[in-house]
């Protein structure tokens, strides 16, 4: 990992993995949103995503690598940074000079990670099991596509909906700081930076809110 031996290289790698996740979230949300108005479209889209070889065997491994890289690197950086101050201040007024979100990326990140574990257990593992262990690539159950029904079923329990809401609020905070931070890390700071910041803030609200709406919608309409 000699390319990642310098602090700046690690920061840039962190930013690149984050930008990749940011793009992924848009695609994921776009598919989820179709479930609000059409079970059919959602089924088609899910089936395409779940069976297209390019997505399954090229995009999916890259995505998994991106997520794992991002949070492993996040933890590594956090530990190193903690170690860079061996004696703590008796009084440290962090709020005077920086936002809560910027100082607690590891907390919002850890919550997102916990959510990802639930999310994988809920959707990803059963999918992989059905498709590649049981070998059922049809996406069918009782003669119909199963995706929409599975989705509705998952959002019945209140605890899961609550977990979704909490996780996405924290994702919003992660991105409130993270979006513009990724650009700064890559050396992008110029007259367009205020646009990046504004766009980042909109993204950090709209995308998590979209996911929350999908979860709430299916909780109350099934």
């Amino acid at each position: 990992m000699s390319v990642l031996s310098s602090s700046i290289a690690r920061k840039v790698a962190m930013a690149l993995s984050a930008l990749f996740l940011i793009i992924f979230l848009i695609i994921h949300l776009a598919v989820n949103l179709t479930s609000l108005f059409s079970a059919e479209v959602f089924n088609e889209a899910s089936h395409f995503m779940g069976t297209n070889p390019l997505i399954q065997f090229a995009m999916q491994p890259v995505l998994i690598f991106g997520v794992v890289f991002h949070f492993v690197m996040g933890f590594v950086l956090e530990l190193r940074n903690k170690g860079a101050r061996n004696v703590k201040y008796a009084k440290f007024n962090g709020a005077a000079s920086s936002s809560w979100a910027s100082r607690n990326m590891i907390i919002s990140g850890a919550v997102i990670l916990a959510f990802l574990v639930i999310h994988f257990l809920d959707f990803w593992i059963p999918e992989i099991n059905t498709k590649y262990v049981l070998g059922d690539m049809t996406g069918m159950h009782n003669g119909e596509f199963r995706y929409f029904e599975e989705l509705q079923h998952k959002f019945v329990p209140m605890w899961r909906v609550a977990a979704y809401v909490v996780a996405f609020v924290l994702l919003g905070m992660h991105l409130m700081h993270g979006f513009q931070s990724a650009f700064q890390s890559m050396g992008f700071n110029n007259k367009y930076s205020s646009c990046v910041k504004t766009f980042g803030k909109c993204y950090s609200i709209v995308i998590p809110l979209g996911f929350i709406i999908v979860a709430l919608f299916h909780h109350f309409n099934h």
Binding site: S6, S7, N81, A84, S97, S102, Q184
Partner: peptide, 20 residues
């Protein structure tokens, strides 16, 4: 940058506290 890293300073996370 190499000297900075060798001295044991932490990684920037762009909190912006330094600028303030």
């Amino acid at each position: 940058v190499k000297q900075m890293d060798d001295e044991g300073f932490g990684n920037c996370t762009n909190t912006g506290a330094c600028e303030v």
